[in-house]
Design a protein around this nucleic acid. Sequence first.
DNA 1: GTCTATACAGCGATAGAC
DNA 2: GTCTATCGCTGTATAGAC
Lengths: 210, 210
Amino acid sequence: MLTSMEEREPERLPTATLILDVAERLLQIRGFNAFSYADIATELKMSKAALHYHFVGKAELGGELINRYTIRFVAALAALEARVSDAPARLAAYSDLYLALLLEQKMCLCGMLATDFETLPDSMHAGVVAFFDKNEEWLSRVLEDGIEKGALEFEETPSEIAWMIIGCLQGAMLIAKPYGDTSRFKSTASQLFKGLRAPAAKTSRSRAVK
Amino acid sequence: MLTSMEEREPERLPTATLILDVAERLLQIRGFNAFSYADIATELKMSKAALHYHFVGKAELGGELINRYTIRFVAALAALEARVSDAPARLAAYSDLYLALLLEQKMCLCGMLATDFETLPDSMHAGVVAFFDKNEEWLSRVLEDGIEKGALEFEETPSEIAWMIIGCLQGAMLIAKPYGDTSRFKSTASQLFKGLRAPAAKTSRSRAVK
DNA sequence: GTCTATACAGCGATAGAC
DNA sequence: GTCTATCGCTGTATAGAC
């Protein structure tokens, strides 16, 4: 059951879905300006013209990629929230969503688009911002809940913490790329959340001093 | 006086310097795949062929941009270290280097190249990694010094904290771009360093609970 | 829906004159 | 050192047949 605020992923022709799948992967690995209709066509063994039948231009394709990615990401957050009830564990699961991308050598789709932001078609700008806003909203709710239940403790507003989490995880992914490993990402993610746990909750997960 | 480990920025023809200046700005704003010899030539009112006289190809130009940027960045860190003696203040000044970029709508040059990493000429890869390594080394030294002097306190290794700082600041810049403001960056940077200050030093800068 | 063929702009790069 | 001219290729996008 969907609430009025959530959006449903539109039904698509099978071919359109295949195109989005390939384009999404190329975008997350190479960036918006470093993949082409030819790349997608080659991989799917289709002509470039067939792609244009499904997606008029690259700006439209990009817009649809953002929409689908955002809908799926929001759905993953809702599923995560239903599965995990403890706020610190929810934050850890949130960072695991990013870690999963990293294991496939990918960046977050909207993180990649953020670096390409100046060169994107205007029509794609709002979608990128909306993605980050939805992340901030979800994290703020989780953080607030964690405060109320006494599992989390911090001085700043939930929104400020949320932006810190989003930025730090995106940046940790960015740094991971040239090194081709996940160790820096994992270390950063765990440090990030350690400082948010309430003293009582801290003991269960804290590490020994080296 | 330079130590044996530091490199000196090579003397260049005035034109070569102008080319690097323009290319650097375009790269930091648009990314490596979203600026061209034509862009630089137009801006400098020169022909593309003249650019090729100074820099054989785009890979060489990119390599020189990384080298110059790294040398200047390392020099800025050394100057900062000479000017500021307190470890927490050094960290704040470090993040101000990034903030200064953001005020010009720029990303860190190597942060931008990290997102473009998969599509870069192989010859540019090592330079990007070297830039981040130098950042890690400098930060680790500052962090270690802060521990020894009792100004900083943390459980992880200096290296782990250093990577966290680098990643979080790069990511905070990335998030700032689509929003076109510096507020999220500033908030993240201040939170980042707050958790590292030793209790005794904390009182001087801590903020009231909202 | 998919194809071939093609238009047209932009790319990095080179030749050769000045 | 800088130019004009041009090459070969790739980019996005379209026309029109099937």
